[in-house]
Amino acid sequence: MATRKPSIDQDLIRDLANILNETDLTEIEIEQDDLRVRVSRAGTVQTVHAPIAQHQAPAPAVPLQSATASAEAVATAAAKTANTVTAPMVGTVYLSPAPGAKAFVEVGQTVTEGQTILIIEAMKTMNQIPAPRAGKVVEVMVTDGHPVEFAEPMIVIE
């Protein structure tokens, strides 16, 4: 019996990748019928089809970005990841203690370990997020009043 080769909807993958870029999510996954597609910032898209028989293996991962990324770009991304403060919970992020108040931190500011850098509201509770280390704020990756996902990058401290 001949098996049909499933076609991959490249427009769907592009749309999911655009959603990742627009929302700064690290991963998104959808499932429809026997097709599941996951796109992550790690650079891979995985397509898995429900097995028809015991011996059928899932489809291989398809690279989302070129496999010829330079070593310098990889090293820069790794350093940025190591210095990135990620969301410890899902909620709404606030960059200041009250509407209209000055932000806890700004790009270029030096922070100390334990200093409050932002607030995440989860289940009507305001959770102060402290700086995990002392350093200089080089990037704020979230927008005041917008939702954040667990492990979403928020602030880079070098």
Rank of each mutant, 00 (worst) to 15 (best):
T84L: 13
A71D: 10
A75R: 12
P99Y: 12
V74E: 13
E72P: 00
T86Y: 04
L64C: 09
Q109I: 03
A69G: 10
L95C: 09
A79V: 09
T81Y: 01
A73V: 10
K102C: 01
K80W: 13
E121C: 01
T81F: 00
T110R: 09
L64E: 05
N83K: 11
I119W: 05
I117H: 10
S66P: 06
L95M: 11
A78C: 03
V62T: 07
V90Y: 02
E121N: 04
P88Q: 15
L64N: 08
V105W: 02
T86M: 09
T68N: 08
A77V: 12
I119A: 01
E106T: 06
V93S: 13
M89W: 12
A87L: 13
A103D: 13
A82C: 06
G100I: 07
T68R: 14
I117E: 07
A101T: 06
P99F: 07
N83R: 08
A103H: 14
A77T: 09
M89F: 12
A122H: 07
Q109K: 10
A122M: 06
V105N: 02
M123G: 02
V85H: 06
V105Q: 02
S96P: 00
E106I: 05
V107T: 14
A77E: 15
Y94M: 08
Q109E: 15
A71W: 07
A73T: 09
T92C: 02
L95T: 10
V105P: 05
V111I: 08
A101V: 09
G100N: 04
A101L: 08
E106L: 08
T86Q: 06
P99G: 10
A73Q: 14
A79T: 11
T68A: 14
A71Q: 06
G108V: 13
T76E: 15
A103W: 07
M123Q: 02
A78K: 14
M89V: 03
Q65C: 01
T68Q: 15
I120W: 04
T68I: 11
A98N: 14
V93R: 12
S66T: 11
A122C: 05
Q65T: 08
V90I: 14
F104N: 05
T84M: 13
V85W: 04
F104R: 03
E113C: 02
T116M: 05
T81M: 01
E72H: 15
A103E: 12
S66Q: 14
G100P: 07
T112Y: 01
L118Y: 05
E106Y: 05
P63K: 10
